[in-house]
Design a binder for these strands. Structure first.
Lengths: 343, 343
DNA sequence: CTCAATTTTTTACGCGCGTAAAAAATTTCG
DNA sequence: CGAAATTTTTTACGCGCGTAAAAAATTGAG
């Protein structure tokens, strides 16, 4: 703990007895210097706790060690959870994750992408708003910066896409619901922001038809990301208005289902499977809170860890290969049925 | 849209017909140049969409326009919501918010603060882990960087503190619960991470004694931020083990209460106020999801907007005054009773 | 129109680091 | 031990911008 404060790499190089270019090399990759010099630098590092100036470091770099993580709505615990995993993964690999939330707003998503460009990130993990995204802006961004999309699929954009296999997962739960009770009605938003929703509706229709049942779709009015609230209010009016042909409601996602559970409670309907229950409610995603609803929500899980792991790997591969060489690959993970008490 | 790409401020100055120092001045404060030159610059900006290199900009600055926002656990919608508001507020004021989550981990909180220092932020809005924080590290950080603490109170640290008045809010709900039914038992974590929890326990005891009732405190085992789960499992064993002396449970926070609601459901107890209900459950914070539980959770609201607004204002004042001159001021906002069906 | 006040331009340096090239030192290995 | 291979040092330049100082231009009031 020498009293002297180290002001720059020059000074640090002096006190550590190593030349500045070598020190610079060390900071860019500790393994690129001989083991003995590395030890000397790290010893000096203990005594003087110097850190290179990130701004100066990045100024001349064509790209940095930054990785942008962009999610459409961070107040949604699904994305909070994924963001948490991604951050962790990036740090582990020696990158600096920088987290952004589009807050459900098109213009803000564009602003984030603009700002991100200026940060010269090595890569970006982007879960776009979806329908609300400015497609041209996103496409242009992906052309400039190595980007892996996840969750929301956008045609032909990005180096890779990682998401869940809605066809499989919806078929799974539709089959389960049909097998254990009445074939489900499908409940979704009128104009879903997320492309997964469209996919799920189609998968629902197909599954129902394959099983010889007639699809029944109920659409909730409302826009935005306030899903629980929409599920609650619109769900209640749908229930009261006898809009559902079935006593079983499959919701497009868990957050909507949580709202519907509230609606059922407000309507005095007991939710669950078997005698004495008036309604079954199922969701999709295995949202972090779905275990704690009353009754606990039956749903299809998305494999959070697989999605984050694969997304990061895909991005890392692109970064390593120094740009855009891998064919655009799409990975869809299968969902697993999560049987709880609500259906 | 001239084909030429602008590479730096020099080139942009050339095409806009203004000298580089003046352009530089413009970017640091558009109002610092004459109106006519400002217009000329902004006209050129339309044609050439140039943006100054942030790294080069910040390199020589003693401090930047960055504002760090640090929350202990972003997967907690309470913090997600506050972070969202704070981000918005920062942008509005022309700053660049950078969001971090400590993920409930002491070491990670320290890393974040370290990294933040390197970003030379104009200021930081910090909700510390609390008990789990490395107090010395946080204190040292606050000495280096203008920091406003919120949510978790740490003695004598930071330029200001903004939080909620637990004494008032707990008194409010204890009084309500006593008035409308049995005096509540208090349910909390054994070793709460958040200092608010301690404050709330004390406020509970005081309120009960003032109303002439004997306090009854039940503590759940478990650590970390997985509150709902702890509330669910420990709540169930407490209920089954007849640990609660009262039929009314006041939980230290809403997330715990959400778990307890699940426990009650699992135990077959109907939760609500009045005849036919076996249990009352109340929480604290008016968590974003508390409106959607079954039954909807009775709780005390924290004034999210007031907290974010005041936090930002306090930080802004410190920044404006160029450092640390304001006396350390503490603002506590009163909670409001949110009567729903659970109690 | 004149003189002072304001604003812009010119000129020049520095920030902290990346990095290239050539020379010097060190290590490796036959 | 000596030559080749590896690593470090020396030297030097540039990145894009902030900013200081002095000179020049513009503006505004009288």
């Amino acid at each position: 703990m020498d009293g002297r404060k180290i002001r720059n790499m020059e000074e640090f190089a002096a006190v550590s007895g190593i030349s500045r270019p070598t020190v610079s090399k060390y900071f860019n990759d500790p393994d690129s210097v001989k083991a003995s010099t590395r030890k000397r630098i790290e010893a000096a590092l203990e005594d003087y706790d110097y850190r290179p100036n990130i701004f100066a470091m990045n100024q001349n770099r064509r790209l940095t060690k930054n990785i942008g993580i962009v999610v459409p709505y961070l107040a949604d615990p699904f994305f909070a959870e994924i963001a948490r995993n991604l951050e962790w993964r990036c740090i582990e690999a020696g990158f600096t994750p920088i987290l952004f939330s589009s807050h459900g707003d098109t213009a803000h998503e564009c602003d984030i992408l603009d700002g991100l460009r200026a940060l010269k990130p090595a890569g970006v993990l982007l879960a776009p708003l979806g329908r609300a995204s400015d497609l041209k802006a996103v496409e242009q961004f992906c052309a400039d910066v190595p980007t892996v999309l996840f969750d929301s699929f956008l045609e032909d954009i990005g180096e890779a896409f990682v998401g869940s296999d809605n066809d499989q997962s919806v078929a799974l739960i539709v089959e389960y619901l049909c097998r254990t009770g009445e074939p489900p009605s499908f409940f979704e938003m009128e104009t879903p922001a997320n492309p997964n929703a469209n996919r799920r509706r189609l998968a629902y229709i197909q599954s129902m038809e394959q099983l010889g049942h007639e699809p029944d779709i109920v659409r909730a009015k409302g826009e935005g990301w306030d899903f629980e609230n929409i599920g609650l209010t619109e769900g209640a009016s749908a229930i009261n208005g006898k809009a559902f042909k079935s006593n079983t409601i499959l919701c497009s996602n868990d957050r909507l289902a949580i709202g519907v559970l509230g609606a059922a409670y407000a309507c005095g309907l007991r939710v669950g499977l078997g005698n004495g229950f008036a309604l079954r409610v199922a969701g999709h995603d295995d949202h972090p809170f779905s275990r704690f609803t009353c009754p606990p929500l039956t749903t299809v899980s998305q494999d959070y860890e697989a999605i984050t792991e694969r997304s990061f790997e895909a991005l890392f591969a692109v970064i390593e290969s120094g740009g855009r060489n891998s064919d655009r690959l799409t990975t869809l993970f299968a969902g697993q049925l999560v049987m709880r008490a609500s259906a």
